[in-house]
Design a protein around this nucleic acid. Sequence first.
DNA 1: CGGAATCCTGGTTGATACTG
DNA 2: CAGTATCAACCAGGATTCCG
Lengths: 133, 133
Amino acid sequence: MRSTTGQTPDYCAIEVAMEVLGGRWKLVILKQLLGGKQRFSELKRAMPQITARMLTRQLRAMEEDGLVERTVYREVPPRVEYTLTETGRGLDEIAGMLDDWGRWYLATRGGSLNGPPRMPARTDGHPVEGAVP
Amino acid sequence: MRSTTGQTPDYCAIEVAMEVLGGRWKLVILKQLLGGKQRFSELKRAMPQITARMLTRQLRAMEEDGLVERTVYREVPPRVEYTLTETGRGLDEIAGMLDDWGRWYLATRGGSLNGPPRMPARTDGHPVEGAVP
DNA sequence: CGGAATCCTGGTTGATACTG
DNA sequence: CAGTATCAACCAGGATTCCG
């Protein structure tokens, strides 16, 4: 296991942030929860792409990381609500900036990442620049 | 199949940002490059943990995503320099915030992520709240 | 020097079915 | 409703070796 935790002198705090916030869903869930307390099914409905399994796992991880709080109501139809903790809410600004940046990026770059619709010849797009000074 | 790319109406821009910036290295590399133009070996030396393969891959991905620019000098000992593009430099603030947050998070949470020192009973920590309205 | 090619692993994600 | 269990696929990431 990779430290990121330990006293290795070679990590940078961004790695820590990415370990807590990284992955495909964490920040999306967080953004959802910025809208206020929500229950499992609401979150699920808000993010159709995520599977129940992943949603559970991410929420658990975020809970362990102190980002969300989980409240279980023992009712006949079970109810579980999720809220952001102070720590979680503190990510408001960062989430917002990433969201803005993502939107801006999409707009600038024409809505296509480097995924499936990969531009053919681009690897050697700008081949050689200049000679040595 | 994961879109994030397509015209699915259900993604949020954060996903885009995470797809471009996510992973373990991208932002670390970016942060390194914020210090100015550097060549491959310099980057490698600055991040001893990364393998040459990963560094190459990440740099290529970032290049394709328009974050870094790659300049090849055809010298006898080959030289390749990497710089941030405008787009890349535009991430300065976000990288800084994530870095700050990571540092703060480490400090607050005692320098340990969710790894080893896991709180035992917390799943049902506050077991039952109230009844249904 | 700055990679590319190849092989490999295990952690993460997903689909599906079942349960309290 | 809010999960859990199980199986399977995928891919980030790494080790090693070779190349211009």
